[in-house]
């Protein structure tokens, strides 16, 4: 059984819980840092990144979340979650958790009236993934170590760096669970690798 948490400080938590739910995944709604210890993977949901950051600081999640990701446990961020993970944010002095070697631009497609949905090819996931973009950010630059998984209109909208997965859009607002299944597979592999290394040592 895999235990995957959804960070529940603010935002679309319920939708991720629904998308992750499967017979071999136990989904946890995470509101306290103590809950991180038991998890094999973690999702940063969509929401308002500035609000989430304030609550991350207030409830002392900052270092535990960095520790979680730096320990090699998989993390998946959508929209605001992607912003939390990025090393650099355009127009801000520094990124939030700085987990991933990417630069992001917030609200890059414009305001709500410019928000849209489309289908995308996402490498390793599918060629017709339903994607809902809401006041979405984009990845303006990705480091050498980062695998670009999807582009829209020439801009990077999904990427993976080892155990870290991030996308600009909201797979959790659709009935298309393939992005989540891809992440669950990342978590499964990570857990098996960790178990193997435990056996060999």
């Amino acid at each position: 059984m895999l235990k995957i948490g959804v960070l529940a400080l603010q935002g679309a938590v319920r939708e991720h819980v629904r998308c992750l739910a499967s017979p071999d995944v136990e989904v946890k709604v995470v509101k306290r840092i103590e809950q991180l210890d038991e998890l094999d993977g973690l999702v940063f949901p969509g929401g308002e990144s500035t609000t989430m950051r304030r609550l991350v600081d207030k409830y002392e999640f900052f270092e535990p979340l960095q520790y979680f990701a730096n320990a090699g446990k998989p993390v998946f961020g959508t929209c605001a979650g992607l912003i939390l993970m990025a090393d650099n944010i355009k127009g801000s002095p520094e990124g939030h958790l700085r987990l991933m070697d990417i630069d992001v631009e917030r609200n890059a497609f414009g305001r709500q009236r410019e928000s849209f949905e489309t289908t995308l090819e996402v490498k390793g996931v599918g060629d017709d993934i339903e994607a809902v973009f809401i006041r979405a950010p984009l990845i303006s630059n990705a480091g050498n170590d980062v695998d670009v998984l999807s582009e829209y209109d020439g801009e990077i909208v999904a990427a993976r760096q080892h155990h870290l997965l991030a996308c600009s859009f909201h797979p959790e607002l659709t009935n298309d669970a393939r992005m989540h299944q891809y992440f669950v597979q990342m978590v499964r592999e990570s857990k098996e690798t960790a178990a193997d290394s435990l056996v060999t040592t």
């Binding site: 529940a8 400080l9 603010q10 935002g11 679309a12 938590v13 319920r14 939708e15 969509g46 929401g47 308002e48 929209c79 605001a80 709500q112 928000s115 849209f116 949905e117 809902v132 973009f133 809401i134 006041r135 909201h170 607002l173």
Partner: peptide
């Protein structure tokens, strides 16, 4: 797209 925007405001 319209309802999703409100979903992001939850909590």
């Amino acid at each position: 797209v319209k309802r999703g925007m409100a979903e992001m405001q939850k909590g």
